[in-house]
């Protein structure tokens, strides 16, 4: 077939397109991801019993600030990565900023505590539950976010997959924070940060397979 014939055919009855579709689809996916993660935590794990106490509220606020900061930056970049050439407009430093902040706070908190408390502060009561729950809660959010990116045309599939994993991991920790009673900054930095990084790596590995177009 001649290229000119193909172009003539494609130019018959050209429909207007919606320029905001990519952003809107990612935003919808983000909403659905949050609903799925919160639903799983409410139904499966339950909200922490002491949620009304000031200490619980303070730590919940800190955990949510970290998790939502991660989700916010990552979803802005994911929307860019969903478009061809979007990888030129990505700042990995900015995406890692919440991680840097929480690690700094964790280090300060460790520095102020006697070293005999360190083990307890880092490992908490439920590190294993956190390590297992966050990636499991992230599965549905990851699927929805990947569905949204597949509606567009990413040209760097490793990065797009990684940011999909980052968003999913972040959303998952937002929901998990409502259940988790381990209130120490080193715990949040290691186990929340670490599981989000795991989700990001999984996304980077799966991206090229799931996002081809």
């Amino acid at each position: 077939m001649k290229t000119d014939d193909l172009i003539a055919a494609l130019s018959n009855n050209v429909e207007p397109v919606d320029r905001r579709l990519v952003g809107r689809t990612v935003a919808i996916a983000l909403g659905l991801a949050l609903v799925a993660a919160l639903g799983l935590v409410f139904a499966g794990l339950g909200v922490r019993a002491d949620l009304a106490t000031p200490r619980a509220v303070t730590f919940l606020f800190l955990k949510l600030a970290f998790a939502l900061g991660t989700v916010g930056a990552a979803s802005v970049y994911l929307t860019r990565l969903a478009r061809p050439g979007g990888e030129r407009k990505i700042s990995l430093g900015l995406a890692a900023l919440p991680f840097g902040a929480i690690m700094l706070l964790a280090a300060i908190s460790l520095g102020q505590a006697p070293s005999s408390h360190w083990d307890r502060m880092v490992m908490g009561d439920q590190w294993l539950e956190c390590l297992i729950s966050v990636p499991i809660i992230a599965i549905m959010p990851f699927a929805v976010v990947i569905w949204a990116v597949r509606k567009a045309a990413p040209t760097n599939l490793v990065q797009a997959g990684a940011f999909g994993g980052l968003v999913a991991g972040g959303v998952s920790t937002v929901a998990y924070a409502l259940h988790c009673t381990d209130d120490s900054l080193p715990f949040v930095a290691l186990w929340y940060g670490g599981t989000i990084v795991l989700c990001t790596l999984a996304g980077a590995v799966l991206g090229p397979r799931l996002l081809r177009w």
Binding site: L6, L10, D18, V22, R83, P84
Partner: peptide, 12 residues
Amino acid sequence: VLAIHLQRHTYD
């Protein structure tokens, strides 16, 4: 050409 046609909504 086909990709550009199909994905033109992704141009910002």
